[in-house]
Computed example of a mutant assay.
Amino acid sequence: MGGPPCPDFSIGGKNRGKEGDNGKLSACYAELICQQKPDFFLFENVKGLWRTKKHRTFFEALKTQLIQSGYVLVERLINAIEYGVPQDRERIILIGFRTSLLKDFGIKINSNIRILPEAYFAWDKYIIHPINKVVSLPWPTTNSFQENSLLPYPDSIPLPLTVEYWFRENDVLNHPNAQHHFQPKAGIKKFASVDEGDVSKKSFKRLHRWRYSPTACYGNNEVHLHPYKIRRLSVAEALAIQSLPKNFSLPANMSLTNMFKTVGNGVPYLAAKAIAKTMLNFLETREWDNEQPVNLRL
């Protein structure tokens, strides 16, 4: 279970695709699965691999390779916010099960099956906030920035999906990584000029305390600013946005660059946990005996 490096497929990355040094690792990942033949696997990557035309061709070729190696597949474009993460983060999830494993479970399939119907795989079971409902809520947009300002919570939105809720929940000011943030050598004036909630630019996005965060990605000069302080986010705050438990921290001897790279490359904890539970539920299911064979082709 894992996600090969994604910069070559990212819309905001180098976009080199399968020919890039990182892109080639996705092919290696699929090749290792075909060689080692685990009972099941999970492949995670950015939505660009799934949505961008030239990358999608490569993605489909990987799927064909896995199918020919004896796997039945199920996939979904997920958003971490659906699982209670205070972050708008889309990722493609591809899961494969060996045909022999499914037969052992009593799932009656024909030899030419290619895609596992979603009716068998309960993607929605652990979704808390369906994405179409979340995005239609009356989220606050922007407020003028004022250092250490107070802003009342608008009770028309779910509090656990807000940045401020997670800052308080994880006690970020007293967290072991609380002081791990980049100290600006210049640009304080620029920091103060960005409104709270203005995430319209590629860099220098100021989060809104009563809204979810854009994708926590801190490479390619992307900078996220604290909602009401004149500084960038701390590692403790970034971990909170990834929905990690309060007691999780990164070693103090890591460089700041590697800390933020580690956080940004990670799958949000609550999303990973929900998908793992969905897979576990499927693997523990034995109520297939009365199902009719499914005959679907890729």
Rank of each mutant, 00 (worst) to 15 (best):
Asn112Ile: 13
Ile113Cys: 11
Ile115Gln: 09
Leu116Ala: 04
Leu116Phe: 05
Glu118Val: 07
Glu118Ala: 09
Tyr120Lys: 11
Tyr120Glu: 09
Phe121Trp: 09
Phe121Val: 06
Ala122Val: 08
Lys125Leu: 11
Tyr126Glu: 04
Ile127Leu: 01
His129Ile: 00
His129Ser: 08
Pro130Val: 12
Pro130Asn: 10
Asn132Arg: 15
Lys133His: 12
Val135Gly: 02
Ser136Arg: 02
Ser136Met: 06
Leu137Cys: 00
Trp139Arg: 00
Trp139Met: 05
Pro140Phe: 01
Pro140Ile: 10
Asn143Ser: 08
Asn143Arg: 01
Phe145Ile: 04
Gln146Val: 08
Gln146Glu: 14
Gln146Asn: 10
Glu147Leu: 03
Ser149Lys: 10
Ser149Leu: 08
Ser149Ala: 12
Leu150Glu: 12
Leu150Lys: 11
Leu150Cys: 14
Leu151Glu: 05
Pro154Thr: 01
Asp155Arg: 05
Ser156Asp: 10
Ser156Trp: 02
Ile157Ala: 03
Leu159Val: 07
Thr162Lys: 04
Thr162Gln: 00
Tyr165Pro: 06
Asp171Val: 06
Val172Ile: 14
Leu173His: 13
Asn174Gln: 06
Asn177Gly: 02
Ala178Asn: 01
His180Trp: 06
His180Gly: 07
His181Lys: 14
Phe182Thr: 07
Ala186Arg: 14
Lys189Val: 14
